[in-house]
Amino acid sequence: MNKKYNGKKITMAHGSGGKSSSDLIKDIFVDTFNNDYLSTMEDQARFDMPKGQLALTTDSFVVSPLFFKGGDIGKLAITGTVNDLAMSGAKPLYLTCGLILEEGFPIETLDQIIKSMQKTAEEADVKIVCGDTKVVEKGSADQIFINTAGVGVIEGDVSIHSNNAQVGDKIIVNGFIGDHGATIMQHRAELAISADISSDCQVLNHLVQKTLNLPGAIHAMRDATRGGVATVLNEIAQDSKVSILVQEDSLPIRIPTRGVCEILGLDPLYLANEGTLVCVVDKEYVDQVLKIMQQTKEGENACIIGEVFDSPKGVVALNTLFGGTKIIDKLVGDQFPRIC
């Protein structure tokens, strides 16, 4: 970062479109994102797309705290959008970066976040090709909000849809669940807990691309972000008009994540993840998909957690450790720490 920004804060001038704006854009964004599409400084990025179906998505990021174990808002802004594209089987290519900054936000922190975005973009093999920055008065936003949109291309006859789960399919997750949510909980000062857990925040597009080498193996796929694995399973069960039965004893949950859940009375199935996907796999290909996943860093703890049944339609149930059954419903709102 240019030394002239040391100790400096974002002012309204940085969003005015004048010299301060263009300096900031050049020094912080263009230098870091560093690609031919962005450096032209046109009002739009121009590129050719490879043959195939286009996938387009957008997501906004407002996480607090901005920096947490295993990630930060910048990393999250890339993984979130890349993973949303990847879940369709698309190869993510280009991303945009829209920022809303609160007046007084330290420029050094901004630089740190932008560098983290670029590092993650490199990991995902995508380019950040255009952007926008607005500054709002102190108190009108909480430090920094990021929006990223992304395009990718679905090659060949890949057909992954949430309404495509078939009776007999198996449900696979690529790793431990609930780590991101448990990490954010321990950063909340008023809960005053600490544990050795990091967010699972990671890009999943390479993992997904590898599984596409088995055509037709994956019927449905979602990343289990807000609302956790339980919410994604409900969406798939409803869209596909099937029933999903999950085995509690097969759920991969880290011990400290379980500890956080026990203390605060939370259910790990509803905790957010930022690098965990749920995929519905044709039973013929289950072993192969698992093997492919387990050979990657993102999927080394991949496992089967459940199966698709015919009815009752739209319902997700859990076989408890005890052989009892309970319905895994959608949450009405957020999960709160409870005492009862």
Partner: peptide
């Protein structure tokens, strides 16, 4: 300490 989670 509870399963690696600590708190006062």
């Amino acid at each position: 300490d509870l399963s690696g989670v600590s708190r006062e």
